[in-house]
Amino acid sequence: MDDSEIIELFRRRSEDALTECGNRFGTYCRTIANNILGNVSDADECVNETWFKAWNAIPPAKPERLKAFLGKITRNIALDRYESARAKKRGGGMVEIALEELADIPAPESDEGEITAVINAFLRSEPAENADIFVKRYWYLRSVKAIAAEYGYNENKVTSLLLRMRGRLKQKLESEGLM
């Protein structure tokens, strides 16, 4: 079953859409949530909430990329939960470490939409593998160790690659006048 067929199920208000999402994207979304929260049980709840939000969003939303659409919902839910758990001094995953790394880049003055546009352009200007590693680290919040294992690199190589990319991103933001 492809994306369009699942979206058709949503549009028909068929609960089968949720089942299909679970079959197709359950593991994917669970991994995203687990990377952020570091807790399988909380991750499961995030995934359930993802299906609920998708159900309410489609229709009228017509996502062209269902996987990323669901992944974004999961990520946002998990980050909200992470914030809540952090306020209660419990839980945690990769978020804090990723934020430490991103602290290399001073907070721009511009709004997030403009910053996102520059980041999109920056990632497209990088070699595909670099961009993918950056997205894995800061969007999927995968650990450096896991990324290194996936690409067959040592952790130092991934760490230094990310460091250099953050430097280039900072330069890009500066050259675009955002900081």
Partner: peptide, 9 residues
């Protein structure tokens, strides 16, 4: 970064 293009994700 959370709002980057779906294609990149």
């Amino acid at each position: 970064i959370g709002k980057i293009d779906d294609e990149l994700i």
